[in-house]
Amino acid sequence: MESVWGCILLGALLSQAAALRCYSCDGDRSCQEMEDCGEQQGQCRTTALTMISRSGVSDRIQKGCDVQGKPNNSISFVSHGQIVMLAEEHCATDLCNQGVPKALSSFPSNASLDCLSCSSSDHSCSSPSLMRIRCLDPREQCVDITAISMPDEFPQDERRIKGCGQISRCQEPLGFHNQDSFYLLQCCNSSLCNNDAHDYQESPLPLNGVTCFACEGNSSHGCTPENITRLQCQGPMTHCMEAVGSHALRGPGAMLKGCATPAWCDAPYTSIYKRLAGVQARCCQGNFCNSRIQAGALPPARRSRAGRRLGAQPALLYGAALLALLVLLPRSS
């Protein structure tokens, strides 16, 4: 019996010793505090917010452990007469999140784009004439981000943002919608190309002929059989998607069903926007094909587009890349 308990104790000590360690702080560039990450938190994160105005430059840095699978993203735009720059980077070795995101470094301006820029926070996205912003990094594209959710997960004044950015997997439109949410991320590579003026809330995209099951919740609330609806898909969201994971409020077995673009199916934005940890996601083609979640789990399918499994403890994503900006910015301003 003593040998059994000895093995258990040894295993616990080895597990603890093997835990990833990251710098952890909020607001201070000279971050020296450290934290041991949770069992499935496989990345260290650095999120940096810089705001440039006539009165000067202000910075806010946050570091800590994060879930696996998050991409590195950055965005810059004009809001309330200030240039707002947000960047988030991830790494996977002990104390690797020591510096600030490289996306905030200075680059020669002769290789950059000019992009249209606005933010719903100052109502500039509804203006007939949008401001221009010069991208600092030649790797950046012009971006256009829409995030609408009912009930609101993001403040209403952050539903639309245009500017410069580096967004993972944005070669094609990244989009998802169901009866509660509409997300669309678009990128382009020529100056002032992010000139889409469509109001997706007032005027939904045309139906594309695909119909999927839709719900949001868990097997006892929101995604019970009687709560699952039939949803006609819009615009480029031509695939049916279903995902299951763990949510800070809904617990394990949290579910999501709806319509998605092919690029969204292969990207980690379900975890970012819906705060799902340990995500298992699957996309498929064909009406009502997203019906495989059973008893809070997604069984393997022979013919399916399966999103990468993102192992993680439930966590509030203070900013998760880019479009975590939609969470980070209101709390920081």
Rank of each mutant, 00 (worst) to 15 (best):
1 M>C: 11
6 G>A: 12
7 C>L: 15
10 L>N: 03
10 L>H: 06
13 L>I: 12
13 L>Y: 03
18 A>I: 08
24 S>W: 07
25 C>A: 05
25 C>G: 10
26 D>Y: 13
28 D>Q: 14
28 D>L: 12
33 E>G: 09
34 M>L: 14
34 M>Y: 02
36 D>V: 12
36 D>I: 10
43 Q>R: 12
44 C>R: 05
45 R>P: 01
47 T>K: 05
48 A>L: 14
48 A>Y: 12
52 I>K: 13
55 S>F: 11
56 G>L: 05
59 D>H: 15
61 I>P: 05
61 I>R: 05
65 C>E: 06
68 Q>A: 13
72 N>P: 01
74 S>N: 13
86 L>C: 02
89 E>W: 03
92 A>H: 09
93 T>P: 00
94 D>H: 04
96 C>N: 00
98 Q>Y: 04
101 P>C: 00
103 A>I: 04
105 S>C: 04
112 S>Q: 11
117 S>R: 05
120 S>K: 09
126 S>P: 00
131 M>H: 09
131 M>W: 09
134 R>G: 10
135 C>I: 03
138 P>K: 10
138 P>S: 02
141 Q>N: 15
142 C>Q: 02
144 D>E: 06
147 A>S: 01
150 M>C: 04
156 Q>R: 14
158 E>V: 15
163 G>A: 03
170 C>K: 00
171 Q>L: 13
175 G>Q: 03
176 F>G: 00
180 D>P: 01
181 S>Y: 15
184 L>A: 00
190 S>Q: 14
194 N>R: 06
196 D>L: 01
198 H>P: 00
202 E>L: 13
208 N>S: 11
210 V>C: 04
211 T>V: 14
212 C>S: 06
217 G>V: 05
217 G>W: 05
219 S>P: 02
220 S>R: 12
223 C>Q: 07
225 P>W: 07
230 R>K: 15
238 T>H: 08
241 M>L: 15
244 V>K: 07
257 K>I: 04
259 C>K: 00
260 A>G: 03
262 P>H: 10
262 P>W: 14
268 P>I: 03
269 Y>P: 01
271 S>E: 03
271 S>R: 09
272 I>V: 15
276 L>M: 13
277 A>S: 15
282 R>V: 08
283 C>P: 09
284 C>H: 03
286 G>E: 06
287 N>P: 06
288 F>A: 07
290 N>S: 05
290 N>R: 04
298 L>M: 03
299 P>G: 08
301 A>P: 00
302 R>A: 15
304 S>W: 10
307 G>V: 08
308 R>F: 08
310 L>W: 12
310 L>R: 11
315 A>N: 10
323 L>S: 12
328 L>W: 10
329 L>A: 11
333 S>W: 13
